[in-house]
Design a protein around this nucleic acid. Structure first.
Lengths: 111, 111
DNA sequence: CATTAGCGTAAGTCATGGCTTACATATACG
DNA sequence: CGTATATGTAAGCCATGACTTACGCTAATG
């Protein structure tokens, strides 16, 4: 159920901005916070949420903490979404076959 | 940028429950609300958010309003996530090639 | 050791949003 | 028309969470 956390994580614009800053490779917290309109502690809190959603991973290098994109969380979200695709298509199919061929209003007297 | 709304929409558990109830085909608002631990107006509000995120579509049938899954919003989210996959892999690749195979200290007055 | 750099955590503030009940709107039907 | 059914909207309450500043902790450095 990590996809639930992933949705929550990616729902916040600032947190997406943090996440997107890791596109070009691992970055330290200070580098990520630099240029963002929020404080560095705020970035730390966002990274924590992203990490719990398995969207990022971290490792130390001296006093610095590097964060990188973790594709695990992305895969979880993708898998969740894919279940809807199949279901949605199947549902439409079943609906078209079993129920009314036209989803229009069933008029009264006529027919 | 509808993926932003989609993330917000799917971040809420109740709203996901509403969304998942459409897996097996279009449903009226009353049917969706039935069995859920929230009131029917709450479901209406959730459906509004889902609709604005292009995750569901709606059509009338008499006094009833049917909602169905709209794959457009799903596709938008998927496309957004896919950009990270490529970037993440490329970044790792570039990192493994250019920088050290071991994430050892570098830069900034290294000695 | 003492100091500095780099992060994480604590505590408190404030806006957002999810929920409720009450009301408004729209369509079918006798 | 008047009523019933089905849904959307309004207003208000309250918990959650995103932000701030202040502080604590760890690791490199001289």
């Amino acid at each position: 159920m990590t996809y639930a956390n992933a949705f929550v994580a990616l729902a916040d614009p600032t947190r997406r901005a943090v996440f997107e800053r890791l596109r070009k490779g691992p970055r330290a917290v200070g580098e990520i916070a630099e240029g963002l309109p929020v404080s560095r502690p705020a970035v730390s809190q966002h990274l924590k949420v992203l990490k719990e959603a398995r969207l990022v991973s971290a490792y130390r290098d001296g006093t610095r903490q590097f964060y990188a994109i973790d594709t695990q969380g992305l895969a979880d979200v993708r898998a969740y979404l894919d279940t809807f695709w199949g279901d949605a298509l199947n549902a439409f199919k079943a609906y078209a076959e079993k129920d009314a061929p036209r989803p229009r209003a069933r008029r009264k007297g006529s027919r």
